[in-house]
């Protein structure tokens, strides 16, 4: 696909996502924060459903060598980076998606978060000169590089090539595990509802007795 074609596809995709996220108030930050802080799962459940659909879709196409998988070596920098990101998104009250969407709603706080995301990236680019870690993609080999705390490149397709089992089979195992998490959340919600109903009923009895 031509460069302009790629950019148009990306823009159309982004626009639809912006519309859907704005209308549904979905927030990735809330999906994690609310589950931990308030034990509510309005955003957690749709995130899990999306991950199940994507796991099946991606691994199915990877089985046949289709699709453009992300290809770079991974290592401890993913843990450290997303740890900082996780703190940041809760403090800012928005993740990468909701900063753009909320900025589009006229939320100046989100625009401010976006501005400082850019500044944070620029600061990192300055610091990178000091130790060149994590390594640039041009120096990645796909093999573990323990000196640089990198474990190489592994995904559903490399598993297929290594074990001779279709990638989609691994995908279905992951879909099943995500489904178990989903089921645990639904059970927890049912228990919460039951407790709520009990408390409401007890309150009614108390009111009736008082009358």
């Amino acid at each position: 696909m031509s460069v302009i074609g790629e950019c148009i596809v990306a823009f159309v995709f982004g626009s639809i996502v912006g519309l859907l996220v704005q209308r549904s108030r979905f927030c990735n930050t809330a999906a994690l924060r609310d589950a931990m802080l308030f034990k509510t799962y309005r955003n957690t459940k749709p995130l899990l459903i999306a991950m199940m659909i994507l796991t099946f879709g991606f691994t199915l196409f990877l089985t046949f060598g289709e699709g453009k998988a992300m290809h770079f070596d991974v290592g401890l920098n993913q843990v450290a980076g997303l740890f900082l990101f996780g703190i940041g998104m809760v403090l800012a009250g928005a993740c990468t998606v909701s900063t753009w969407v909320k900025a589009g709603e006229g939320n100046v706080g989100a625009m401010w978060a976006l501005l400082f995301t850019f500044i944070g990236m620029f600061l990192f680019s300055l610091l990178w000169t000091e130790n060149f870690w994590p390594p640039a993609s041009i120096s990645m080999t796909g093999e573990p590089n323990l000196e640089a705390l990198q474990f190489g490149f592994i995904n559903a397709r490399t598993l297929q090539d290594k074990f001779g089992v279709p990638a989609v089979i691994f995908g279905m195992v992951q879909v099943f595990l995500l489904g178990l998490i989903y089921r645990a959340i639904v059970k927890k919600e049912q228990a919460q509802q039951l407790e709520h109903d009990k408390a409401a009923a007890a309150h009614k009895v108390k009111l009736a007795a008082a009358a």
Partner: peptide, 23 residues
């Protein structure tokens, strides 16, 4: 928000990925 934004930007670059790529 300022600290959060800085941590997000720095974290993304350190990890090569953001929350969207992760999930």
């Amino acid at each position: 928000i300022t600290i959060g934004g800085l941590l997000m930007g720095f974290g993304i670059r350190l990890a090569f990925v953001c929350n969207v790529s992760t999930f």
